[in-house]
Design a protein around this nucleic acid. Structure first.
Lengths: 181, 181
DNA sequence: CGATACACGTGAATC
DNA sequence: TGATTCACGTGTATC
């Protein structure tokens, strides 16, 4: 079981004295190199409390895993964000059919309201990081806010803030800020 | 210079035999732990060619530095992307002209001209009878709301309602409803 | 056969 | 003091 040391052991391996010194020297060099690497490693791992070899290795392992995880998240985030900003930037006129002619109501105020109402609801969305802003300009109707909010929440968005502004006689301007879950 | 081994050396350190075995055992345990850590470390460092301790340490060091650099780049990229996505959303709503048309006319397709141009703040206005809605998407700055409100009031507008929504890290979305005096 | 790499037992230092 | 940690010289295995 336990290896009985061969004791004085010139029996096992004969070594010429010059070679023995080489061996010692080589081993010394190897240890030196390892020591330097340990120091180098410990110098790039932040928040090292204990400096013994086992701790340095252990913390280095944890740190590497942490970095890998962080990179993973960052890369996912970057891809998602690119998609979001592309998808959500446009302004939609979802209702009815074809009509895409929308000129300003700058000419007159009278029929402006009517003209506006024909295009309702008007929806705009923006994205920045996890935040999403949704703006809806629509006809004033009871229960429309609750309807919109529940709709938004069903999209896995957490509503951070919302405001409803009455505008004119018959329209509402709803602004919602939500966060992606 | 070269340490003459004290030979049989009961002179330097006396050790009871039970303790001697503990010492050996403890050291064995320590080495075992170190070995495991080395294995663990080498298992999470990709592309390891040589598996000797010095190489594992060296490659781990290089790998950590690489990860750190990558994270640095990704974070910068992410921030830039965030800004870009915000900037991309901007449209021409320059307060200068009267025109409040918010849709680029369908004929012009050169919407993506000098995209680097900063178009902050983005301002949009609507009017309905006596109501005026002003929406401003701008950089987050202290005192900007007061500034805007006083500016609006100086235009003979009575502010009916206002909301300020923080959106993303560095932008504000201000919505104001006012009435013409 | 060198050269290289490792684990071992051991003495010493530190807490 | 006892427990931990280290560096050292050494035997040995692999290429």
């Amino acid at each position: 079981m336990i290896k009985t040391r061969p004791f004085s052991s010139m029996a096992t391996t004969t070594r010429s004295p010059s070679h023995a010194q080489d061996h010692i020297l080589a081993e010394r060099k190897r240890r030196e190199k390892l020591s330097q690497r340990f120091i180098a490693l410990s110098s790039i791992v932040p928040g090292l409390k204990k400096m013994d070899k086992a701790s340095v290795l252990g913390d280095a392992i944890k740190y590497v895993k942490h970095l890998q995880e962080k990179i993973k998240q960052l890369e996912e985030q970057t891809k998602k964000r690119t998609v979001e900003s592309v998808v959500l930037v446009k302004r939609y006129h979802l209702p009815a059919a074809d009509d895409d002619d929308d000129h300003s109501n700058s000419s007159s105020n009278d029929d402006a309201d009517d003209d506006t109402r024909r295009r309702l609801p008007e929806i705009e969305a923006r994205a920045s990081e996890r935040d999403v802003m949704i703006r809806i300009h629509c006809e004033k109707q009871p229960g429309v806010l609750a309807k919109v909010l529940s709709e938004v929440e069903s999209l896995r968005l957490s509503i951070v803030n919302s405001s409803v502004l009455p505008f004119g006689n018959s329209t509402l301007d709803i602004t919602i800020v939500a966060q992606v879950n």
